[in-house]
Design a protein around this nucleic acid. Sequence first.
DNA 1: TATGAATGAGTATTCATTCAT
DNA 2: TATGAATGAATACTCATTCAT
Lengths: 199, 199, 199, 199
Amino acid sequence: MPKIVNHEERRDEVVAAARRIILRDGIEAATTRAIAKEAGYSNGVLTHYFADKDDILVSALESSHRRIADRLARKLSGRGGLEALQEVLVDNVPLDAERAMETGLEIGFWGRSLTSPDLLEVQRREAAELRYLVVSLLQSAAEAGQIRTDEDLDDVAERLLALVDGLSVHRLLYPSRITEERLERLILGELDRLRTQIH
Amino acid sequence: MPKIVNHEERRDEVVAAARRIILRDGIEAATTRAIAKEAGYSNGVLTHYFADKDDILVSALESSHRRIADRLARKLSGRGGLEALQEVLVDNVPLDAERAMETGLEIGFWGRSLTSPDLLEVQRREAAELRYLVVSLLQSAAEAGQIRTDEDLDDVAERLLALVDGLSVHRLLYPSRITEERLERLILGELDRLRTQIH
Amino acid sequence: MPKIVNHEERRDEVVAAARRIILRDGIEAATTRAIAKEAGYSNGVLTHYFADKDDILVSALESSHRRIADRLARKLSGRGGLEALQEVLVDNVPLDAERAMETGLEIGFWGRSLTSPDLLEVQRREAAELRYLVVSLLQSAAEAGQIRTDEDLDDVAERLLALVDGLSVHRLLYPSRITEERLERLILGELDRLRTQIH
Amino acid sequence: MPKIVNHEERRDEVVAAARRIILRDGIEAATTRAIAKEAGYSNGVLTHYFADKDDILVSALESSHRRIADRLARKLSGRGGLEALQEVLVDNVPLDAERAMETGLEIGFWGRSLTSPDLLEVQRREAAELRYLVVSLLQSAAEAGQIRTDEDLDDVAERLLALVDGLSVHRLLYPSRITEERLERLILGELDRLRTQIH
DNA sequence: TATGAATGAGTATTCATTCAT
DNA sequence: TATGAATGAATACTCATTCAT
């Protein structure tokens, strides 16, 4: 009997290697050779587990999103409405080294997605999920009377998500301008503006 | 007798060619040969005016920013305060094909900047100028009593700029979600929220 | 207790798979993995039954010749002389899809044989058998008074065999020039010219 | 002023190198690296003169045909009818080392042509020219009363051309069977059979 | 005997860079 | 200053072969 390897596990190893390279040296540096070497295998292994390089990149992007989603799900369990929404937004913003790297990877993929239909499709599918989550939480918050309802909730969701991504980019590119404190303050402040004013 | 050429002019020609290619076909398509050909020169000429390819790319980014700034300056002449601020924000958002391509170029450079100190430096320098302009306009609007002053104007500026970039990315990646109408509505709505409430 | 397998049988299975691929997709498509997969085995099994890939190809060529010979033997049983000769020649020419594929395989091997001593040896050995058959049939036809004897029978055999191969190649490369009708007419016409003229 | 090279000349150098390799080691051995090396250049040069490898191979095939055609034109000048036809056929058959190599190259290309539309198109175009020449010469010979006219001349042409290619292949694969003498005798004999019988 | 994981040299092609003219 | 020929290392991908299990 030959050594049987878990295909999914091997794929994960390679994808993790690709992620490490993209995070460390940028998406341009993620050549197949570099990925194989980083994973500790020879060139040829990639063939067994991936159709082609794009398959690796798409998997790396999906893996990144899955990690984020998993972490979020853990935090969100048992919460709802405005409280959960705050978790979602704060979690999607580079407030620590780990999330800063995730954001960097994401930005690299944005550029690629503009010229790669496969990557774009992944981005869209998974961005749609996040948007759906945010809209749902806004609706339950509205039903619970936690937030104002004088604005279209779809618009609110898009504004929140744009703010999250815009601030994330700026945090990475202009860290001295967007400190972690300001980043958090701006996110929380935006949520405050949604709250029903009581006076 | 050597031919006398205007160095700066030649650089501009080449950089313009690079910009055209990046906008038209993406940053990946901007090979040195393609740039030289687009500029109407032989590939060897680049040597005389640029240290290397990166030098061209950095210059192309600067040039792109300069064009945006120039267009803005033209629109802004004679205006001030909130009115000018609205021009600045709306102008920085991909509301037509030309600006959509500029945004695409910008996003491509974001990814590169994260691993290229030279590009990052350019990004920072020029983003700082835009930020300075926004803060200045906010201040004059505040002094003119056009906007509320219960929030730190630096924070307001960062929020506006993040929103602009976040919405720009989303417009490119998720055009069916962020239509041009919604994009404009969200920008203008954000400005409305700054206005002094009159009741 | 090791599994007992019939070596010759396994080889035949693999060779048949190789033949199927070459006929279907061309000799270029006959990679070791493709052959193993087509045979229903893992790629590693080839090691046990073949020295290397060339060993498989040589066997495939032999197998192809053997099949042709078998088909011929079946048709020939009970016949002799000119009648049998006609069967031999017509059978060796791509007058249907199956034989067209066999001819394609053969032509592919011709090119390889020119630089591979092993393949060349197989070609020679088996072409000699066919030539022997043709000469024998010519002799019996001559003895039976069916054909003219004013020409060296070896020469006649070579001319017939060359015509068969030449027309086969042309049928594959220039099908609109060499239609199936013309192909058959030319073969039969050549035999007619051998017949003793009766006047 | 840079060194200006004659593009056509450089292409010819590379094509000649490709031909040498194909003749010496077979078409499989004609890798781009091997061709560049044989031509005395680096890998990268090929880019300047050829679109891709297929462009080189097609050019090599065309070049080979052109050489044959040129040699033929020289021999044919001033001749016509049966005499010229004999030249054509005898010239197309590997009666010396040079033509043996040309035949070898041709056989290698036959296999490729079966799976490469580009090569097939070249083969067809140029085979059509040869066929046209043979038919023309047959017609003028017929008009001059040199040959029998009881058979369709298109059929005669196809038989002659098939015989030429069939014998050529056999001469290369089975040289002991098809000696140069027999090769020539069979070609000339075939022409004799066309001659008007005088008795 | 059979598996299939792994290797590493191979393929064509691309491209930034160098440099003699 | 400008040309464009030439380089050679890089890219993604393929594949015959090896070998521990």
